[in-house]
Design a protein around this nucleic acid. Structure first.
Lengths: 338, 338
DNA sequence: AGCGATCGCGCACATACGTGCAAGGGAGAA
DNA sequence: TTCTCCCTTGCACGTATGTGCGCGATCGCT
């Protein structure tokens, strides 16, 4: 868990900066720094840990302009989106994989955020995992807004959602706006009514003004199906409808098909997530995907043009490309013998 | 010494990026990375060293908006320049101090540089030291140009100057333009004549188009007097002239007084360095100073408005402020009893 | 093909680093 | 004032990391 935000202990921050400067810019050993700063080596070790975890020290990996991974390049070319591949061994468990992708995503996130931005956050296991690994950055007037409700008929889920929002707010000194509605309504008319309420409108307006949206994807076929599918949010007959409608996944509770279509999926009328047409007006839409079982869902999201920036584990990236390749083969096979 | 530039071994770079990602973004131990990458732990250690030294991993210290060091703030306010204080213990030797300031400066430098820039480099012990600690960064079409000649009546100094330029060029994939003239001419007319030559004009034109200038300062009073004063560049009667003219220091062989004046110092007619009026048209002028014995020189340079960004060791920064404070006291003492 | 030079790799050792634990010290409450 | 609680510090230990050295592979030259 990251240390408390730094604004309150100016003395400690100064010492941490000095130690960090000596360690990272002058290559001194902690021992030498301890002598210079008249304290023990272990205190310096802790001080440096503090400096890292509070973002005073910022460690970035920069791929020398796109020559880094041919996988990244290939996806970039094929789908026209910026991609970050997260190296994860193929034999890693799904939990491990998610954790590692989200840790990497969290640490790359500050490249995308800046002061005065409105940032939309989906609610789900991906976002929760990311929120645990954020590295603070000093920003002003950042607003985080929840994209989809978290409640179901058993729990409001609000504690988890608000915990996640709080962590984002803490890390970037921003404010956060909860969206205290159920993930899915039983009756679309309730949603319509609530959507006209001014308190709801405030959230929706904020969503409409987003500069960045951050989300994972759901997949009904995933080895670890997303919250949405197992949390008691949907009834058996809802699942049947999903099946009939050939849904391959969802983004913040809004469902889509393999070809990216979604407008005529009735379940979406009851979903709390943002209208995807509107989501697409957000300039940057960062999608974090972990696990090859989500590739079908991802392809749907890509077809729907929901994603501008993708963070994905290596194995899934490979699977994504392969599935795209085999499409082409099928297509051309289809063409040569009509 | 930094590793060779990375463009030539794409495989090694890819591995280094992967290792760096796993180490810095996912917090794995080198041991774990070695297992994932099927190699030995020591190879990973070396690979990470490579990644750091080639700038694939970029470690920055960010002061949370100006709350960092009150010294930095104070100098900022008093002299209207951006300042970076380098922490160095007071008892450090002059060589140590220079080395550490220059290492820090080198590692901060990439903040200032970008593609397509023209960068002027003075020639002296400060710049040579900086050049030894540069961290590479992938840029395009950067041009480095030498600001002052290096030759004297005993040696051309060209090998050292070109070595320094080469290191800059290597680190930022730029080209470099030497300035193969003596530091000081014996006869100002020779300089005038040479300055009309087209080959010289090319260099001077480039200097006129600089986006960034990087230089140390000379001081005739410094504990370790700068190259200029001990390298056999000046005759005994030149020193007398400096004394008479009340010179306190030089920037790239061009001398100035405590009040910042320099136009009427005749020695400057024979100097190879840039006209200071012209230097001041360069948008960013970064000055690196190490050692309190250069404070008088620095004050002259500040009075002449030669500096927009200052990198200085802590002790000297303190000395600079104190000297400025005592001026004010004297001034006000003068005012209360006229 | 044979030979030497050169490079990269892993081993093993020395050093540097992170962290549980107990003691010290300061702030707040009684 | 005194007691208590909590936070911070340094110690000691185990782990993680850096590096000199020797071996084997590779490349180029004759």
């Amino acid at each position: 868990m990251p240390n408390r935000i730094d604004a309150d202990q100016p003395e400690k921050v100064r010492e941490a900066l000095r130690a960090a400067h000596l360690y990272y810019l002058q290559d001194l050993t902690m021992d030498a720094i301890a002598r210079e700063m008249h304290t023990s080596r272990s205190s310096i070790s802790r001080l440096l840990g503090f400096a890292r975890s509070t973002g005073l020290v910022d460690i970035q990996i920069r791929s020398p302009y796109r020559g880094s991974s041919s996988l990244e390049d290939a996806i970039q070319k094929r789908f026209q989106i910026a991609t970050h591949i997260v190296p994860v061994p193929d034999h890693a468990s799904n939990v491990d994989r998610l954790e590692r992708v989200c840790m990497s995503a969290a640490r790359m996130l500050d490249r995308y955020l800046d002061s005065n931005m409105v940032v939309g956050l989906a609610w789900g296991s991906t976002l929760t995992a990311i929120s645990r690994h954020l590295v603070p950055k000093e920003l002003h007037n950042v607003q985080f807004v929840q994209l989809n409700g978290a409640g179901n008929n058993q729990t409001t889920g609000i504690v988890y959602a608000s915990e996640m929002l709080r962590r984002f707010g803490d890390a970037y000194s921003g404010t956060s706006q909860q969206f205290p509605v159920p993930a899915f309504f039983d009756d679309p008319r309730t949603k319509e009514a609530l959507w006209r309420e001014r308190s709801t409108r405030r959230v929706l307006d904020m969503q409409a003004r987003m500069d960045v949206a951050l989300f994972g994807l759901g997949s009904p076929f995933a080895d670890v199906p997303s919250h949405v599918y197992i949390g008691g949010y949907l009834e058996p007959r809802d699942f049947e409808m999903l099946d009939e409608a050939q849904v391959v996944g969802d983004c913040a509770t809004v469902f889509y098909r393999a070809d990216g279509s979604y407008r005529d999926i009735h379940l979406n009328d009851r979903a709390s997530g943002p209208d995807l047409d509107q989501l697409r007006r957000t300039p940057r839409r960062i999608c974090v995907v972990s696990g090859a079982s989500k590739v079908a869902s991802l392809r749907g999201a890509l077809a729907a043009k929901l994603v501008t920036d993708l963070v994905i584990d290596e194995g899934s990236a490979r699977a994504l490309l392969e599935s795209a390749m085999s499409d082409i083969e099928h297509a051309s096979a289809h063409m040569v013998k009509p």
